[in-house]
C-alpha cells in the first residue's frame, strides 16, 4: 500500500474531502482547479493539518487525527516538487540541489544532475534561470533529499516539448525502477494517462 489517505479539511468556503487507497506506482490527482488538489499534497507533506482523517504512506502513519499522530514536516521525507520552483534565492543552484542531501542513500548526485541536464547551471543564481530550468533544479533538489515518496504538483508545466519528454521518462523510471510511491497533480489528460498507474478524480 503506497498511499492510504482519508482527509477532510475546511479552507474558507471550500470543503476538501479526499479518500485514496493506492498500491505501488504513480497516482494522479486529476480535477478542476480550485478543487483542492494542492491542498491534498500539502496535507500529505505535513504543511497543512487536516481537520480529520489519516495519512499513511508506505505503511507508515504520518498523520492520524483520532490517534493524535502528526509527524513533523522535516521527518516525513517527502520529495515535494511545488508548482512554483521555490528555489532559495540566496543560494546558488548547486547549494539548492544539495540542501536536503543526506549524504548516503538515494540517487547519485552527479547522475541526477546529468539526468536533469542541469550540469551547466550549477554556479548560477536561481533568479537567472528560466522557468523550465528552475523546475528541473527543483525536481533535482527534491530527488536528492533521498525522499521516501514524491509529491509532484504540475511538474511538467512550463517545460518545452523535448524537456517534457525527458522529465516524463525520468518520472517513469522512478515509478518503475526505483518503485517510489508518487502522488502527482496535473491538469493534462495526456500526462495523466501516460504516467498514471491510476487516476483519481477530486
Amino acid at each position: 500500500m503506497s498511499f492510504d489517505l482519508d482527509l477532510t479539511k475546511r479552507l474558507g468556503e471550500t470543503e476538501i474531502a479526499c479518500r485514496i487507497v493506492a498500491d505501488a506506482g504513480l497516482t494522479v490527482l486529476f480535477g478542476p482547479s480550485g478543487a483542492g488538489k494542492t491542498s491534498v499534497l500539502n496535507m500529505v507533506a505535513g504543511l497543512t493539518a487536516p481537520d480529520a482523517g489519516h495519512v499513511r504512506v508506505g505503511g507508515e502513519t504520518l498523520f492520524d487525527g483520532a490517534a493524535g499522530i502528526d509527524v513533523p514536516v522535516a521527518e516525513r521525507r517527502a520529495g515535494y516538487v511545488f508548482q512554483e520552483a521555490r528555489l532559495f534565492p540566496h543560494l546558488r543552484v548547486r547549494a539548492n540541489l544539495l540542501y536536503g542531501c543526506r549524504g548516503d542513500g538515494g540517487l547519485d548526485v552527479d547522475e541526477t544532475i546529468a539526468l536533469l541536464g542541469i550540469a551547466h547551471l550549477l554556479d548560477r543564481w536561481p533568479r537567472t534561470l528560466s522557468g523550465g530550468e528552475a523546475r528541473r533544479v527543483a525536481i533535482g533538489r527534491a530527488l536528492l533529499s533521498d525522499p521516501r515518496f514524491l509529491l509532484l504538483d504540475e511538474p511538467l508545466s512550463s517545460l518545452d516539448r523535448a524537456r517534457r519528454e525527458e522529465i516524463m521518462a525520468l518520472i517513469e523510471r522512478l515509478r518503475d525502477a526505483v518503485r517510489m510511491p508518487i502522488l502527482m497533480v496535473t491538469h493534462d489528460r495526456d500526462e495523466a494517462t501516460r504516467l498514471g498507474t491510476r487516476v483519481v478524480g477530486i
Binding site: A74, R86, F88
Partner: peptide, 13 residues
Amino acid sequence: RRLEQAAATLGAG
C-alpha cells in the same frame, strides 16, 4: 514563508 516550507520538506528542522 513558502521557502521555509520548502526547506522543511527537504528535512530541515
